[in-house]
Amino acid sequence: MKTWIAVFPAILILSACVTINIYFPAAAAEKAADKIIDEVWQLKDKATPDAKLIEEKPATK
């Protein structure tokens, strides 16, 4: 009986940890997406090509 009182909360905590463990790796997914998009759209140069274009665009008056 005593054992169960100690074990039950521990099982709860453990299952919570397992739940945390299957979180979505957002940074890795972004990296993977960038790699695939670069290939599909053949954006060979690593520097973001649109960053330059945005700067060159005159500000709206």
Binding site: V7, A10, I13, L14, C17, V18, I20, N21, Y23, P25, A27, A28, A29, K31, A32, K35, I36
Partner: peptide, 22 residues
């Protein structure tokens, strides 16, 4: 239980560094 807990807590850090399989 302590060992299991430590493993469960360490696992996300290990997988966070890994890349996605593509």
């Amino acid at each position: 239980l302590l060992i299991l807990l430590a493993t469960a807590l360490a696992a996300p850090f290990a997988s966070a560094a890994a890349d996605l399989e593509v």
